[in-house]
Design a protein around this nucleic acid. Structure first.
Lengths: 210, 210
DNA sequence: GGCGTGGGATAACGCTGTTACTATGGAAAA
DNA sequence: TTTTCCATAGTAACAGCGTTATCCCACGCC
């Protein structure tokens, strides 16, 4: 009695099959990059034919989209694990550092989220909404600063988006090879610049020499 | 006497053939995106067989790399066309706006430069060096601010890289669909935040209420 | 028990990049 | 002028891809 991962999952219903396929795809993505995401390979990995992938995901686009939202969920968990701090600005800086660490550690996931490494794929509006949910963590942290009266101006949502963009920008350039030697310094400098540009804090006021 | 683009170029030597092929590829990229960059299509477009592409570019990777450095050169010309201003900070802001305009107008080129829309392709170190040459324009503008004593701190190269990253970050998120409604505001806010965070100017000193 | 239907495997289609093979055409050598 | 030779280009094949059509089987229902 042979029992491939697929046969085991089959006894537990469609949900188990789905996660089994997603797990295999996830492993291939992390290990070999987006190029390894071939339906035939995924099917072979779990021991079934590609037909099953079409029933579960309606083709490659659907599979990649499922992987896409899963990547954002992982990302959210990682950011949620950053411990709170007494200083809300410190907390925000730590969120930024965790962001970069995740991106560099799981760069194939990060590429899936923000590059477009799979030729045909563009996330649906629904998937984009789920992706945006990841950054409520960032928005909450900015809202905390706003509640403390430390925002220099602008809507909290826009401030959070600016921060997100700046951090993503450094990480993206770094991953593309455009910051070969001094990515660390550029990242910290960008973080500091956004901090003094967006917020009012005692420490930045000292820096400004007021 | 049939005269395809290829036959015309053939009489003028390899360089003409090369540019003819690159032009066709460039047109396909701009019009239909990276997915249209198929060797057979490019060859058909100019009226030759794929063998010629292998002689000129040694395969798809070489062709895409040629397109990649060409995209950066176009980008550089666009940034170089931004007129100087009396206020060097204003000039920098205008560079940022021109950056975004180019990226959104030629988004398929921008994707080629900073995303990785062609599965196998990663730019060589040499191509990355040529790409970096694009941003000497940005570095020069920052150096001008430094010469005027307006830098808040940090090496000019790092400051330029931070700016680049922040701008690229907004544009990248915008193109990925993550800033559906308020991309304009987020972009201007990021520009302003980086301005007050990185530079010392009379206007920002007023904003800070000193 | 026979029937119908849903699910899965196989194979084919058209596409991709790549490579081997073949023919051709013009320059160099005799 | 004739012959040789080699770079060049076109054709076709190969392996792989996503996708789809076909066939088959096994299960539930009447």
């Amino acid at each position: 009695m042979a029992s491939s991962p697929y046969e085991l999952a089959q006894r537990q219903g469609d949900a188990a099959i789905r996660t089994s396929l997603l797990d295999a795809a996830s492993r291939l993505l992390a290990a070999e990059g987006p190029g390894a995401l071939a339906l035939r390979r995924i099917a072979a990995e779990v021991g079934c034919s590609t037909t099953v992938l079409y029933r579960m995901f309606e083709g490659k686009a659907g599979l990649v989209e499922a992987l896409y939202v899963e990547a954002f969920q992982r990302f959210r968990r990682r950011l949620a694990a950053v411990p709170e701090r007494s200083d809300p600005l410190e907390h925000l800086v730590e969120l930024g550092r965790a962001y970069r660490e995740y991106a560099l550690a799981e760069r194939n996931y990060y590429r899936l989220m923000f590059g477009e490494p799979v030729p045909g794929f563009r996330p649906s509006d629904e998937a984009l909404v789920q992706a945006a949910a990841t950054f409520t963590i960032l928005e909450d942290a900015v809202a905390a600063l706003d509640a403390a009266g430390l925002l220099a101006g602008g809507e909290p949502r826009h401030v959070a988006a600016s921060l997100w963009a700046a951090i993503h920008g450094v990480v993206s350039l770094e991953m593309a090879g455009h910051l070969p030697a001094d990515a660390d310094e550029v990242f910290e400098a960008t973080l500091a610049a956004m901090g003094t540009g967006l917020f009012r804090t005692p420490s930045t006021r000292e820096k400004r020499g007021c």
